[in-house]
Design a protein around this nucleic acid. Structure first.
Lengths: 226, 226
DNA sequence: TTTTTTTGTGATAAAATCGTAATAGAATAT
DNA sequence: ATATTCTATTACGATTTTATCACAAAAAAA
């Protein structure tokens, strides 16, 4: 299941009423009441935006944010009763997108959330699809000509990273950082995996349409166009 | 010229000190003191982020935002002494990315600006475009007369460096430092690559409009003018 | 453990790029 | 006007980068 917005806050009353308000005004929202719950939520679900309280009974929102940032890039808006500037600065420095002071106005918060969702709507999309190739980010599956194809974990990761940067050149360096998680094993490795991916998804791997090589730099996913 | 951040505010003292603070901490910032000034700024310059006051002596920040949003997608952060929730909601609804209450903490504002620049940094260094030549920094691609042209990694690097310094003379020494990463291979090399670039982007390579030779010094990218 | 799958390595081939050298042409200085 | 210095142009070979293949190592599954 997919939610637009996830609220992580142990002040149940406030969190629930916020979610209710959001749902009423078209932002589908779910609530979890702690850090642990949040982690397990993300095992089976995704969200496009997180409202994260700093003071959670079972852990710090900051720590949770740092952990989330290792795997996801979705907007995180901190909410807290803390008023200190230092907290706000820390929140923004560790990858938070905004800091909202409690008590907040539901109307303002909703407007803010909508603005952020609007901004990131494109970046957080569900995958890629043209008539021929389909990649479903939620299911982590790819289809070619309507048929499910088999990709290894690494191949899928490589493909999805390229698709996330559709139209942009992704350098080999960046690929090793993001797909191989900084384990640089040599350009040969990359060559081979690119070839395997091409064999899996290209109509003609010798004349690729999707995964183009950018000489002296890296590779680029070109959906349909160039 | 390119600035990271543009402050639009008629409270000169506050705006100037904010800019000073930002510049000190690595966010290159310039200030204009009204809506008209802002509009003329964007005729010759670009920014990656705007801090926009709502109450300007020569117009409303809201109107300015609506106008800007017709042509640009760069982040706009409103700053204002107004406390009403309605103002905040309007600000966010018309395409503002955030609303910062005056008086603000410089540290928090800087952190916020840096966070936004980090998010949008990549997307907003669009590149260069006139009717004829277009250079897309994100895709690392160039178009001439609407058609994608093929550039080698080095050629692209050379072109983008010249464009980053549009209007300024870039010495051969500097080019070897920045494009060739300090590997000086002789002026002949540079000649050849300049020629190849000209053949790729100039209407008439023998009478270049874009990449001009500056005798005894280096080269200069002249976008249309000069 | 054994089998299977996935990932990485090294050798070789192929392709594209880059630098060099030689020559011609401009601009500047004497 | 001439010499000098700097830039433009051209073609070609050396170098660098990528592709491909077969196989080995590692990891995961049975």
């Amino acid at each position: 299941m997919k939610y637009n917005c996830l609220i992580v806050d142990d002040e149940k009353l406030l969190a629930d009423s916020t979610a209710e308000y959001f749902n009423l005004f078209g932002v589908s929202t779910t609530v979890v009441y702690g850090a642990d719950e949040c982690r397990s939520f993300f095992k089976d679900n995704t969200a496009e935006l997180i409202l994260l309280d700093i003071n959670l009974e079972d852990g710090s929102g900051f720590d949770l944010c740092r952990k989330l940032r290792q795997t996801t890039n979705i907007p995180i808006l901190f909410i807290s009763a803390r008023t200190s500037d230092d907290d706000k600065i820390v929140a923004l420095n560790i990858g938070g997108d905004d800091y909202v002071q409690k008590p907040y106005s539901l109307g303002v918060l909703l407007a803010k959330v909508k603005a952020v969702l609007k901004r990131f709507g494109k970046a957080c999309d569900a995958g890629y699809s043209d008539g021929y190739l389909t990649v479903d980010f939620a299911a982590k599956q790819a289809y070619v000509g309507g048929n499910l194809i088999k990709l290894t974990a690494l191949e899928y990761k490589l493909l999805s990273y390229l698709i996330e940067n559709k139209g942009k050149v992704v350098s080999k360096k960046e690929l090793f950082e993001r797909v191989w998680e900084d384990k640089f094993t040599g350009d040969g490795t990359l060559n081979v995996h690119i070839r395997r991916l091409r064999e899996a998804i290209e109509k003609n791997p010798n004349n690729p349409e999707y995964i183009l090589t950018v000489w002296g730099d890296g590779y680029k996913f070109a959906g349909g166009n160039q």
